[in-house]
Amino acid sequence: MQVTVEELAPVARFSLRVRDKGVAAVGKALGLTLPGRIGERADRGDLTALCLGPDEWVLTAPEDARDRIAADLAAIYARAPHSLTDISDREISLRIAGPAAATLLSIGCPRDLDRLEPGRGVRTLFDSATVVLWRDGPEAFRMDVWRSFVPHVRPLLEIGQEELAAGL
């Protein structure tokens, strides 16, 4: 297969919102520097922070880290007000990998994927669904899709895979 699509197991996923001086404090509590530019990500071990907006990050971590992250940030809320919302079940992550991964995504994503370098991620569109698209490697993408859109997006990707398999 030139490209595979698989549904990934759930992870702990949070929407983190914080601004100004709070950013550094929250980063410190998480043990990493929250990236300041939209599309950039930072990693510490299994913990990843991807900047989606000027005051918005998505955090991912193993499931068993959920409560600890929530507790760590709750502890600094009073001096660094922020919003940490559990969205672990909001999205389903699809891994799209293989030499034709970018081509498969081009059936629904209007962005120039050549300009989404490995290690970056952005919120964008796939068909008419809002998604967060991560590029984990030159031929490896991850797409976080709101759960209810998956019954639309997944079969569309399958049609695209069949088309690629047909070779035309």
Binding site: I38, G39, P54, P110, T124
Partner: peptide, 17 residues
């Protein structure tokens, strides 16, 4: 479809977004 420069993302992107 237009191209729009988002001043926050500092990227010029398709209108569909």
């Amino acid at each position: 479809m237009l191209l729009i420069h988002c001043p926050y993302c500092d990227e010029t992107l398709p209108e569909a977004e």
